[in-house]
Amino acid sequence: MSEAAITTEEQARQQGDRFRQLVEGLKAEVGRVIVGMEDVVENTLIALLSNGHVLLEGVPGLGKTLLVRTLSEALDLKFARIQFTPDLMPADITGTMVLWEKPTGEREFEFQPGPVFANVVLADEINRATPKTQSALLEAMQEHSVTVSGTSRQLDEPFLVFATQNPIEMEGTYPLPEAQLDRFLFKVTVNYPSLAELHEIVNRTTGHEIPHARKAANKEEILALGEVARQVAVAEHVQDFALRLVLATHPEDEQAPDSVKQFVRYGSSPRGGQALILSGKVRALMDQRFNVSVDDLRASALPALRHRLLLNFEGRAEGVNPDDLIQEAVGRVARSQEDVPV
């Protein structure tokens, strides 16, 4: 569904108000189930409204799967969960052709769609599957289509992949290839909850009644608001900031900090810039603005770029955290902004 172009200030305000109401509603519904994790929820919603995929990274038991499930409940979207294991085959994800006997006794191959044919796909522990299986998602994530037996089948919109991975258990896992990582709009780190949050989690989950999210938005609304977000204006100097930030993650760039030059092998792809701008637009609307600001970009810099930085051997050996490198790059680009000489 395509939303008509917004041509007047009044329309922009109406759409902006509608956008905020929906986001607030979604947040409230997710908040009924999920305790804390405001940043994670916000980034997930931003990715949802930007029509982008999210890679959630965190140790087991932090509620990553619950978050995605709750979100799909609140969105009234078709939800599918794929538990990635080493023996999972690509056909288990995309679907396969099965031999079907008609009442007439005639036999023919018919396509049996896999779990990827859903609006929200939870790829649980995605790094446990082999690269071959992981690659089955590549086309779906980028083209929103699946090709089986030479026939390309379009996926239903919106199509969102929420993948989770465990950063600790490295044995028997297959790190995601760069091409796949790059397709995620955000990589969101899920941190351990605080004591207060833990209390609340225990209270909510061990009681008589388990809370559930109610429907707060439907498929059409999500798509329409995604279109509204895409119309948010971006000034040249803001876009310039985003692109210079992307370039600053490249070791060969002049503006790159020394640490980037030392520890990074490859910087962010252009998708990083797209992710920054798109997420910035959604943040602007959520903040009751109609323009993207540099602060929006700063807020999105870590989730949008941290998985796009490929560390070199020295970086990996030193245990360098890409977040630190990105923060340095942000600081460097911010300092180079034109300033009044006072």
């Binding site: 172009a5 329309q11 922009a12 119309q231 948010v232 204006a233 000034a235 109609f290 323009n291």
Partner: peptide, 16 residues
């Protein structure tokens, strides 16, 4: 400052 220079600013730009 930038949007005001456009001859026909979009709705979002007008709002900004």
């Amino acid at each position: 400052v930038q949007f005001v220079r456009d001859e026909s600013p979009s709705g979002m730009e007008q709002a900004t």
